Amino acid sequence: MTWHKIPHSAIDSKKAIQQIKLAGKDFCLIYHEEKWHATSIKCPHAGANFTGGWCENGRLICPYHRHSFALGDGKGALGQYNAITIYRLEQKDSELYIELPESIFTKLANIFK
């Protein structure tokens, strides 16, 4: 896992749900109830992109079938039996960082250094 700085343009927009790509990884950056969250980009139920969804009461709602996921731990609603990935965020001064897994290519490159 490595930390990556999220571009200021994403943070300044405070758009409710936006798709970001860093280090070859797509994720959702979500601004809900004056707090930042980062989740996987697709719903595990049917693969819908969450950027077309919305948030209610601390939950991310899928735009296709309205499955909902807790922004805190990623767990689906009771009876859904699924979850999304939640990525750690850290604020340092006015910068926002996300912890993302290293790609297989980066791991291989590090082995052969």
Rank of each mutant, 00 (worst) to 15 (best):
R59V: 07
H67Q: 00
W54D: 13
C43V: 08
N57C: 07
A48H: 06
Y31C: 10
E99Y: 05
C55E: 13
R88F: 00
F50N: 02
H32P: 09
R88D: 14
G72K: 13
C55M: 12
L100E: 09
L96D: 08
C55D: 10
K75E: 12
G76M: 03
C55Q: 09
F50P: 08
H67E: 02
Y64M: 15
Y64P: 00
Y97I: 10
I84A: 03
G52Y: 11
F105G: 01
E34Y: 15
Y87D: 08
Y97D: 01
H37E: 02
S103M: 03
G76K: 07
W54T: 09
G58L: 03
Y81F: 12
L89Y: 14
A38F: 09
T51I: 12
G52F: 09
S94T: 15
H45E: 00
C62D: 12
A46Q: 15
A77T: 04
N49K: 01
N82E: 14
C55P: 12
Y97W: 14
G72W: 06
C62I: 07
K42I: 15
Q80H: 02
G58S: 00
H67P: 00
S40M: 02
I104F: 06
A77R: 05
K75C: 08
Y81E: 15
F105R: 09
L71A: 06
Y97T: 04
P63V: 03
H65R: 06
P44Y: 10
Q91A: 13
R88L: 05
